[in-house]
C-alpha cells in the first residue's frame, strides 16, 4: 500500500470520519493510513463563510480518515475562504 507515496510533501486536504476538514503537508503514512500532517489548519465551514484554525503538527489515526485529497495549490490559493459558504461535511455513519 504505497498509494499515498505520491502525496508526500504535497499539500493535502483530509476529511475525517467526524466530518472535519484538515489541510496540511503530508509528511508520513503507514499501512493503516495513520498519517502525519505538518503545518496544518482546520477549515470550519458554515453558511456565513469559512474559518481557518491553525493546528500545527498532527498525527491522524487511520480509522478516522475518510478521504485524503491532493490539493492543487494554485486553485487552492485562489479560493476566497472567508466568503466560501457551505454546510460542514457530515460524519460517517456506520449506525443502524
Amino acid at each position: 500500500m504505497s498509494e499515498l507515496q505520491p502525496f508526500i510533501d504535497h499539500s493535502v486536504s483530509v476529511i475525517t470520519a467526524d466530518g472535519r476538514f484538515i489541510v496540511g503537508t503530508l509528511k508520513g503514512f503507514d499501512q493503516t493510513t495513520n498519517i502525519i500532517l505538518e503545518k496544518c489548519h482546520e477549515r470550519v465551514f458554515s453558511q456565513t463563510g469559512t474559518e481557518v484554525v491553525p493546528l500545527g503538527l498532527y498525527l491522524i489515526q487511520g480509522d478516522n480518515i475518510c478521504i485524503i485529497g491532493e490539493l492543487d495549490d494554485i486553485r487552492d490559493a485562489n479560493l476566497d475562504l472567508a466568503n466560501l459558504c457551505a454546510d460542514p461535511i457530515q460524519a460517517v455513519k456506520h449506525s443502524h
Binding site: M1, E3, L4, F7, S13, I15, A17, F21, T33, R43, F45, G62, D63, I65, C66, I67, I68, G69, E70, L71, D72, R75, D76, L79, L84, A86, D87, I89, V92
Partner: peptide, 30 residues
C-alpha cells in the same frame, strides 16, 4: 482503498469543499 483522478463531487453546490482537489485517496472502510 481507492484512488481517483479528475474528481468531481456529485453535488458540488452542496459540497464546494473539494473544489481545489484534483485527485484523492478514499479509505476503503468508508
Amino acid at each position: 482503498n481507492i484512488k481517483l483522478d479528475e474528481i468531481k463531487v456529485v453535488d458540488e453546490a452542496r459540497y464546494p469543499h473539494m473544489i481545489p482537489v484534483k485527485n484523492c485517496f478514499i479509505r476503503g472502510s468508508v
